[in-house]
Design a protein around this nucleic acid. Structure first.
Lengths: 221, 221
DNA sequence: ACCTGAACACCGTTCAAGT
DNA sequence: ACCTGAACACCGTTCAAGT
């Protein structure tokens, strides 16, 4: 039932994703998307109530590419898998990814990721009451990092600016001179992501250990 | 020199900030901003090359409200001060803040914050080579968290969705049931921010301690 | 130096109409 | 059921002109 309607919907979302990839999110207009598949702008309103709903569908489509981690992975490996998937989704859809921070995550695929994180945190031994907080922290980091990497906040321009400042105004702040050599260094994003993520997972592990000690009376191993 | 021009510029940025506060960033158009101070849209092009440059000026204006931490604060307190300032800037300008993640941070006020973080991390004892990475991690968290809080990613809607799902599909994922009671709980953002930030600062402290041990041969206290 | 008017090539969305 | 046409109230930006 309504299979035709669904495939039309998918066709529209695909077209929108293409327009975004080729000309940026700014260029995703009802008119441009419709034109790409030979329709009139008004035809889209049979499938999406308005443009925001179309944008939400694009987000959902992008997150749908995230693969489920194998069920036999440990909690740490599960989170690492999801982190890698989120990051590669961002790299595949750099112009669309920033939309994630702009609207609440309600698509089925977003909820899948959240649920998998919940499950991993519970398996890590984090107290249930702390699990939503930890999930928020981890997903904030995952999305924030990916956006910064693809969206330009850490772009070459800004790094250059920082490095140049260190050379031009050496006594700006005590210690800034010390950093001069490191500010313009080529960044190894993979290594940095890994290191930061390890740090976060250490927080999780530490919290879990503390929670377990509390639940287990002293003396009982 | 060119004092008149500067004050006109400031007047325009103020107007843009007002329009954003009252009707959202979407409503910030050259036409609307100009109209608010009795000008023609074209008059703005004497002060800003285009709309993007006006948006950058808005970001700079918002970050300029961030106060410098007292010079005698410890590294931890310095970072906590900046974190609180960033967060309250986000709460003061919820519609404008998300722009931060959208463009590189090159305004003088953004650079001030970055420099102060650099300085704090050096004082914490973090190896200079690790300082830029740590700064990226902390600022990613600060901005990401603030955007999530004000921008709707953690909005009531999405929390409701998660909680409702736990009740409707109890066997969705093992353990999801355990969380049901916590998903709809009212979130204490202040406490959560504080706790997460403490976790991050612990990473910094841990890294610093390791770096210092390495620089200091064993046996020498 | 600072601003305006008119114009161009776009937007999202509503409504009524077509097949 | 699915789509189109015309219209409305908007955009950013260019160019030439005004004072």
């Amino acid at each position: 039932m309504r299979k035709l309607k669904d495939s039309r919907r998918a066709e529209i979302v695909d077209a929108a994703l293409l327009v975004a990839a080729e000309q940026g999110v700014k260029a995703v207009s009802m008119r441009a998307v419709a034109a790409r598949i030979g329709l009139t702008p008004m035809a889209l309103y049979g499938y999406f109530r308005n443009k925001d709903e179309l944008l939400d569908a694009i987000i959902g489509r992008m997150l749908a590419e995230i693969s489920r981690p194998a069920a036999d992975l440990g909690w740490r490996e599960t989170i690492l898998h999801l982190a890698a998937e989120v990051r590669s989704a961002a790299r595949r859809h750099p112009s669309v990814f920033p939309l994630l921070f702009t609207r609440p995550a309600v698509s089925p695929s977003a909820i899948m990721v959240i649920d998998l994180l919940f499950d991993a945190l519970l398996r890590a031994g984090v107290e249930p009451a702390q699990v939503p907080r930890m999930e928020r922290m981890i997903s904030t980091f995952l999305i924030g990092y990916a956006i910064s990497e693809v969206g330009g906040r850490f772009s070459e321009g800004s790094l250059d600016t920082r490095g140049r400042r260190a050379q031009l105004e050496p006594d700006l702040l005590p210690g800034h001179q010390l950093l001069a050599g490191h500010l313009d260094a080529r960044v190894d994003w993979d290594a940095e992501y890994q290191a930061d993520l390890d740090g976060l997972l250490d927080i999780v592990a530490g919290l879990a250990a503390r929670d377990q000690r509390r639940r287990q009376p002293i003396g009982k191993p």
